[in-house]
Design a binder for these strands. Structure first.
Length: 490
RNA sequence: CGGGGUGUAGCGCAGUUGGCUAGCGCGCCACGUUCGGGACGUGGAGGCCGUGUGUUCGAGUCACAUCACCCCGACCA
């Protein structure tokens, strides 16, 4: 199957439908736009959760959980927020079913209508701020630094496996602070947490920047984001951190008594990443043989494949591999011995490659006689004969090297596909081939909209670390103080 | 919600201008031979042809309706 996938730059849906699904990550569910994440795919999510959760805690956050259902009235309290989400809400109107009068199946019991409809959370700002109101009375109660791991539902027009499912899993941090400064620092801190997670764990280089007002989160004063480049040159927003100002505090009347005894509205942030990260992982690293997972997020880091004929050889080889397995496990490496007897080793090789296991160790009678094993690395598909003595150290180094190499590949790819362009005509032509474009923009939503309509490219972000550079907007020629990143995006 | 496409075995598909007992590949089960890169042979199990209503002597095939899914837009993490 993998061999048929050759046009990865053009057709990710083929990956998802024909390759990734067969790689046991996910399958479509009967429910509109939702997906069943299979155990292997979920294991990746658990890895992501584990790493992020630790980073959140290291930055002083704690986990909590808030209700799935939000009373409709909560949504209407913050005007921009409701406008942003109103079009994509699942609404609970009734609480009971009954047997259909015509005897066929069940229908909604019309007498069980809810007094107030409940919204299945598309995000939890409203219900959380309704709760924070009761938690925050004094400056001594601040800051509140909560995160929740949850599912949310957004009834999008169009869904896409991993990238935009109707229901998705995510993490949402919601913090409350006494000062504007503190909240802004938190917003910045968390986008940097995301960026370092992407870099260090996902082997995914990202750009940090600010969204333009039209791309901002509904209800935010500023949205910081990390943007990654996929292998087809399209951009993927991989995480966001919002500075919400006092908008939600005002909407939910959350005031605190300051040291000076004055009542003040609190300042807030929210930030999140979702199962979209799994999609990012797939689209950034995979090749025609299937997934390529960074060792630090791979559910299995090493697979052992015995090569043998008959039961005698199997037990000999198994005995040969067993100490290797133990040695690796002792070093904290996740290992699986694939001793299935119903498929041949060639099949196993192909299957584990498709699943993206970073390192494969195979051994047969020949290796046993020589005291070696065959070590294959997923990122380059290279194979090498390695002595068993010291294999644990060898594998540890190899895993580190693979992690670094995958990042490096992605980074080089992004650099090769990032262009500085000044002419709009040139931009219109070259955007067709994908990539990030550093261009001058006059800062108006009108120009942004015009570019989007004419080229399908959006401003992914105004990079935070870019050096100022006076120039002229590529469309209007009006002055611009710095370049922004344009790209077509998922 | 617009435009296009697809619904036939667990998966991927074929099925002619309507015709007799609905096929193929993969997978599955049994036995045997194999086993250092996706093995092969023989035998076997598995179908209300998405759903409904029509047309017809006869419908997987035609008509209408309906539902679901996929792709391209609009919307979005």
């Amino acid at each position: 199957m993998a061999k048929e996938i050759t046009n990865r730059e053009e057709n990710y849906s083929l990956w998802y439908n024909n390759l990734v699904v067969k790689a046991d990550l996910a399958e479509n569910s009967a429910v509109r736009g939702c997906m069943v994440i299979k155990p292997y795919g979920y294991a990746i999510w658990e890895k992501i959760q584990g790493a992020l959760d630790k980073m959140f805690k290291d930055t002083g956050h704690v986990n909590a959980y808030f209700p799935l259902f939000i009373p409709k009235s909560f949504l209407s309290k913050e005007a921009e927020h409701v406008e942003g989400f109103a079009k994509e809400c699942a609404v609970v109107t009734h609480h009971r079913l009954m047997n259909s009068p015509d005897g066929k199946g069940v229908v909604v019991d019309p007498t069980a209508k809810l007094e107030e409809e409940l919204i299945v959370r598309p995000t939890s700002e409203t219900i959380i701020w309704n709760t924070y109101k009761n938690w925050i009375k004094s400056y001594r109660d601040l800051p509140v630094l909560c995160n929740q791991w949850a599912n949310v539902v957004r009834w999008e027009m169009r869904t896409r496996l991993f990238l935009r499912t109707t229901e998705f899993l995510w993490q949402e941090g919601h913090t409350a602070h006494a000062t504007r400064q503190e909240a802004m620092e938190e917003t910045q801190r968390m986008v940097e947490v995301y960026a370092s997670f992407a870099r260090d764990w996902m082997a995914l280089p990202v750009l940090i920047g600010s969204k333009t007002p039209s791309e901002r989160f509904a209800g935010a004063l500023d949205t910081l984001c990390i943007e990654a480049m996929m292998q087809d040159g399209k951009a993927l927003q991989a995480g966001t951190s919002h500075f919400l100002g006092q908008n939600f505090a005002r909407a939910f009347d959350v005031q605190f008594a300051s040291k000076e005894g004055k009542l003040e509205y609190v300042w807030s942030t929210s930030w999140g990443v979702s199962t979209r990260l799994i999609g990012a992982l797939i689209m950034a690293h995979s090749d025609n043989n299937g997934l390529v997972l960074p060792p630090k997020l791979a559910p299995l880091q090493v697979v052992l494949v015995p090569i043998y004929k008959g039961n005698d050889e199997l037990s000999e080889i198994a005995e040969y591999l067993q100490p290797i397995r133990k040695a690796l496990e002792a070093k904290g490496i996740t290992v699986k011995m694939d001793d299935r007897d119903n498929v041949r080793s060639g099949f196993k090789f192909a299957e584990w490659e498709m699943k993206g296991v970073p390192v494969r160790i195979a051994a047969g009678p020949r290796d046993r006689a020589q005291g070696t094993v065959e070590v294959a690395r997923r990122d380059t598909l290279e194979k090498q004969s390695v002595p068993v003595a010291g294999i644990d150290e060898y594998v540890i180094q190899l895993l580190i090297e693979i992690q670094a190499n995958i990042y490096q590949k992605a980074h080089v790819f992004r650099e090769k596909n990032t262009f500085t362009v000044d002419s709009y005509e040139e931009f219109k032509t070259r955007i067709e081939d994908g990539g990030f474009f550093l261009c001058h923009w006059d800062g108006t939503p009108e120009t942004e909209e015009k570019i989007k309509e004419e080229t399908k490219a959006t401003i992914r972000c105004i990079p935070t670390d870019a050096s100022p550079e006076a120039g002229k907007c590529m469309v209007t020629g009006k002055p611009s103080a710095q370049r922004v990143i344009f790209a077509r995006a998922y």
